[in-house]
Write a protein that binds this DNA or RNA. Structure first.
Lengths: 194, 194
DNA sequence: ATTTTAATTATCAAAATTGAAAATCAAATA
DNA sequence: TATTTGATTTTCAATTTTGATAATTAAAAT
């Protein structure tokens, strides 16, 4: 009985807004005021539903890591059996498919890692896991490639991808995006020749 | 006559500290207090020597662009005649030679571009110029490569390089750095085979 | 309709940040 | 040494940000 709780939805709403603010202003620049405005809620509701600044960051990191894991896994599972690598790169470099905010949040959390050793540990693992996920796709289609080459191409594609999405705050850079995608494909192609 | 002015040195001192803070906390997170502490000066001296927040950012951008142009030019001029590309990549991925803070400042300014169209214009040009500089080195040693391939490899190497240095706040990631450098070399090598 | 549960709003104090000006101190020269 | 120029420190008010609690309102069940 009593008024039904909407805490779960509010929490999501707030964390989504927080994510947007972190992507735009960085971890240190995302003030509670901005988050509240972005969420369309009064500031005290942030405290009521999630907590103070530290609680907020902890919740964001938790959400980021779990969502990332799920979405990467889902993407890999959705890849076709043939031409999986090319399809993966198509998706990573398609601005309509890939979520730039995801990468911007990752970069903000990586930047904040300098002040937060515990966060650094988590983000190191996240980075290596992401690269390892790409590597597993590459390995399926270039099983004759050396382990070092697989490591290199996976790190290279990840780097080009991160960098490409990190340019989005400047606005349209479709020429660089296009060249970057082509570079990723060249990297992958060089695997098949090894 | 009168007491000699130290404004130029103070200005440099302050902008250097500001740069460090921007690299660590982002444009929005670099407060005057933090800058003053980093510079080892009283806060009013920032205002006295450089100005308010906006003046500070304008001065930083100006300094960043001019220093970047000079240092990239100097690096390219210092390249040997033979194996210029390999040497360039050696330098870009050598943590003792390459300055990670330079890349972190660039990323922070790119992130801040979303709120500042004028800054976006400058940083777009800067990004394209940097890629074009890499391209000019590549072109010298792979003159038979197609223009599109040169664009792609230049953008790819730049992206891998930016991304690698942007990971430094997490601490030691030498495995990823090593793999990234190898990827950059593979990209370049694929040019020669085209 | 009353009760109960929880969302929402109002309000306050403390701390941090910024902008700005006045006052003071230091190092040159005449 | 007196003067002048400018660095440095002191101080103040205004604004923003944060943390926290009390008061109010809304929506369900009995």
């Amino acid at each position: 009985m009593g008024r039904p709780s909407v805490k779960d939805e509010r929490r999501e709403q707030i964390l989504r807004a927080y994510e947007t603010c972190v992507a735009r202003f960085g971890v240190e620049g995302a003030s509670l005021e901005k988050i509240a405005e972005e969420a369309g809620l009064a500031r005290p509701l942030i405290r009521h539903n999630v907590g103070n600044r530290d609680d907020l960051l902890a919740a964001l990191v938790d959400r980021f890591l779990s969502r990332s894991e799920r979405s990467v896994q889902r993407m890999i599972d959705a890849l076709p059996d043939s031409r999986a690598t090319e399809t993966l790169i198509d998706w990573l470099f398609d601005p309509n498919y890939s979520d730039a905010q995801f990468v911007l949040v990752a970069e903000a959390l990586i930047a904040a890692s300098q002040e937060d050793p515990a966060l650094a540990t988590l983000m190191k693992r996240w980075t290596r896991d992401f690269i390892a996920s790409l590597r597993s796709v590459l390995e399926n289609e270039a099983s004759n490639a050396s382990s070092d080459d697989l490591d290199a191409v996976a790190a290279g594609v990840a780097g080009i991808y991160f960098n490409t999405d990190s340019l989005t705050p400047m606005g349209n850079m479709s020429d660089v995006r296009h060249a970057s995608k082509r570079a990723a494909l060249m990297l992958v192609a060089s695997l098949e020749r090894s």
